[in-house]
Computed example of a mutant assay.
Amino acid sequence: MYVATKGGERAIEAAHQWLAEARRGDPAVPELSIAQISEQMTLAVNRVMAEGSLYDPDLAALAIKQARGDLIEAIFLIRAYRTTLPRFGGALPVETDEMAVTRRISATFKDVPGGQVLGPTFDYTHRLLDFALMADGDAPQATRKPAETQPVPHILQLLDRDGLMEPLTQGEATPPDLTREPLEMPADRPLRLQALARGDEGFVLSMAYSTQRGYGRTHAFVGELRIGTCAVEMEIPELGFAVEIGEIELTECETVNQFTGSKTEPAQFTRGYGLVMGQSERKAISMSLVDRALRWDELGEENTGAPAQDAEFVLYHCDNIQATGFLEHIKLPHYVDFQSELELIRKLRRDAGAETCKEAAE
């Protein structure tokens, strides 16, 4: 006989205490500070901010600490906190042309205006464990030039000049805000980009990888990848002009994709676009590849049935908080449901046994 466990409230309280003890670890080891996480685990902090839709490095670091390093749990905490914040206005669109870049590369042109800026990257490391990091020594001092503060033109403007790149179009209507309104289908490009920007990095990466393996008929080049800070401005009605309220670090990626043309458009290059909060270039590149794959309809291309071309499949499954909630709810009590399944199986077995006996008797 299956019965419900007694004393559930006391058990849950004890589980919370055990969780706090497990999070702290050995008391003899110094506890991680929020500043340490924020300064030394920046890529994890950036991911939590991007997928949590809240730009605050300290709060993201706090969430990572509270979640014991489980980034999806930390993202959940940040999104939950975000819902408690009052909204007092909206910022103007950021101008990435005016980004103070710390990293800027192109895989399509070697010599570009402003030069290639490698910046802090794992691209040229040997992927060997650095055991020197186990010793608490002084941090190495890098030889680097300061961030480029002058406006740096986008590299794809070189193709724009020759008419080889599809023209940029500016929508007139303000796109819906995915953080305040539920996702609805069909979703236009601004809404798709919002969903991808805060989608799970691993899922978006897998979708992007599938397009590179042939599921989507797109062959992309990184036209430009740039990382840096942009000013955030807000219009103040009482003043009649915009004022800068802060800065935000962003990663932007534009990919160049071949387009053989259609009945209405000539052969040209098309764009994939990715923009993510913080330094998150893997996510930005993945986002741009998936964005391009999802544009098959508006470009008049054939839908090959690739998963990355299915907007409903991609957008409804890329959100890790929704996915986690649906997945993890199955570990909660389902005693009544299971009892009904159990009785059904027993009945089917009894009926099958009776039928077998009847056949044997005949």
Rank of each mutant, 00 (worst) to 15 (best):
I227C: 04
A220E: 12
S33N: 06
E302G: 01
K283I: 05
P333Q: 01
T251P: 05
M49H: 02
D351P: 07
L32I: 09
F259Q: 03
T84I: 05
E328F: 12
D26V: 03
A50W: 03
D130F: 10
E31P: 05
I248G: 00
P57L: 01
R103Y: 03
Q268S: 07
Q40G: 02
K331Q: 12
E312K: 12
Q339R: 13
L342C: 08
I245P: 03
L178Q: 04
C230I: 04
T149G: 02
S286G: 15
L225H: 07
T83Q: 13
P186G: 01
I236C: 00
R82Y: 01
F313I: 05
A208P: 10
R350L: 14
P167A: 15
I37V: 15
G216R: 01
G8M: 12
R82T: 03
E98L: 09
A14M: 13
Q258W: 11
T229M: 04
N320A: 15
V243D: 06
L92N: 06
H219F: 10
R23P: 04
P86Y: 05
R161I: 08
Q116M: 13
A197Q: 02
Y273D: 02
L129T: 14
D70E: 12
E343C: 08
R192T: 02
W18T: 14
G52Y: 01
A142C: 03
P333Y: 04
T149I: 10
L225C: 03
M1C: 09
Q279G: 00
V112R: 03
T42I: 09
L239S: 05
F259T: 06
G305F: 06
H16T: 06
T229A: 09
Y273F: 15
A20G: 01
M234P: 02
A323S: 14
R198E: 03
E355Q: 12
P175F: 00
T304I: 08
D56S: 11
E148F: 08
F241C: 05
K347H: 15
T5E: 13
Q66H: 13
A231Y: 00
V3S: 10
P175L: 02
F241A: 09
E31Y: 05
T211N: 07
G90K: 12
A354W: 05
L315I: 07
R282F: 00
E254D: 06
T356K: 15
L196Y: 04
E172A: 10
F326S: 13
G278I: 04
R87W: 02
I72G: 10
P151S: 00
F76H: 13
T84G: 09
E9F: 10
R68K: 14
L332N: 15
I330C: 06
L159G: 06
G119D: 05
